[in-house]
Write a protein that binds this DNA or RNA. Structure first.
Lengths: 229, 229
DNA sequence: TTGACAAAGTGTAAAAATGACACTAAATAC
DNA sequence: GTATTTAGTGTCATTTTTACACTTTGTCAA
């Protein structure tokens, strides 16, 4: 089967930068390439856009196929269109970034037949194509998003402690934060619901568990509220 | 001549949302469509991406061809990939927004043979395809950019007064700003160079002219400075 | 059982940033 | 020379941000 057009067409792909948080460290999901070019090197999961799916659906499908991930938070990052970014032919790629809660998703990705692994996002191995550039941009974007929108919760389990939340911010933004000021600010937003449960983890006082209240956030946003950490 | 591929390929275009400032009002450049679909309606300038040009080069070329614009500030906005956004076939479009100084560029665009005109960005005519959605997103992005990065100068002549700058912010952000506080803050950044010249405009005290110092901005950015208005 | 340990949790005061506010200065036109 | 119009300037109250140290509550081991 072949497809013919009156004018040449550039090929269109999507790539996904999937972030996860593992023990306070930000990780990125990479796939080992099985074919040339860059055979054996690590790359972002991705692939061609089908004719009847949206861009976001294409990324979601690729993440499912290549890493067994589904239902993750996805947002468009940037479209990369350098002429020689793929050595074979002209390929333009729409990059998305994804945030997953590693606790829920780690198993399937780690045990998938295709070699998919989590690497420290700040020190990835050598990457195929222009994927290092894509990753760098995704990291910058994540930092920005984290500051100005409450997306960090996507990286945490549904129930989390304030310490976990703070560590997430410290780890992604790369700056230490004051415990009291952090808690004061975060709780002041009125976006976290304290649960009845506590989290026990070692020989010390257990921590209060919270969950994020997305409905409340939508409501506040309507009222002109502007999240900023 | 025809081009054949093993798999179907979606078509890839670029669109440009060109903003200009006219007498304190934000305008957007639109092109009247000469062919179906949406013949006679207004649309964003744009067109197909050639095989040997980057996305940004494609927008720049289209803006030159369709509106006689060149050398404008361009930044990628978003890539629109809804399956039915074009009634003819599947077309994915990478949208850019552009900022131009109308004083320099207005003539050519207004007198071009193809019908290209400036419309109030906040009250555009009915637009072809999903271009209303693209314009809306561009406006949101412009507001965000204006707040957090000094891009507003792209919309003004090289030499401008603080009143012009303030009116630009008020007009785009849609809020009145206090004259003294605005000047205090803007001048405090140390990014504006006062010129020897003044601007005479009517029977009143003439205004000091300034120009933006991009080199200084780059230097401050290195040092961790963060523009915010 | 009790004492050592470890992380959770909590308030205040100084400093900085923001926001509100009204008059004088300099040019033109009549 | 006087009326008109926009440019240009400083202070104080309020809010926000930052710096900082001790008590609580659980586990574990002696």
């Amino acid at each position: 089967m072949s497809y013919t057009y009156e004018y040449p067409r550039v090929a269109l792909t999507v790539d996904g930068v999937v972030f996860g948080l593992d023990g306070g460290e930000l990780k990125v999901l990479l796939i080992e390439r099985g074919i040339a070019p860059f055979k054996g090197q690590w790359a972002l999961p991705g692939g061609f856009v089908h004719e009847n799916e949206t861009l976001e659906a294409a990324v979601a499908r690729e993440l499912e196929e290549e890493a067994g991930l589904h239902g993750v938070f996805l947002e468009q990052l940037y479209t990369f269109g350098a002429v020689r970014r793929d050595p074979r032919e002209r390929i333009v790629s729409v990059a998305y970034y994804a945030l997953v809660n590693l606790a829920d998703h780690t198993t399937r990705a780690a045990t998938d037949a295709a070699d998919a692994r989590w690497f420290p996002a700040a020190r990835p191995p050598g990457l195929a194509f222009d994927h290092a550039e894509i990753l760098t941009m995704a990291l910058q974007r994540l930092r920005g998003k984290l500051r100005y929108e409450p997306v960090g919760f996507e990286l945490l389990p549904e129930k989390f402690t304030l310490t976990q939340l703070q560590q997430l911010y410290e780890s992604v933004l790369g700056v230490p934060l004051d415990k009291r000021n952090f808690r004061k600010k975060v709780l002041g937003f009125d976006l976290l619901i304290p649960l009845e449960e506590t989290f026990r983890d070692g020989p010390h006082r257990p921590a209060q568990l919270f969950r994020f209240d997305p409905a409340r956030y939508e409501q506040l946003k309507q009222e002109g509220f502007h999240f900023e950490l």
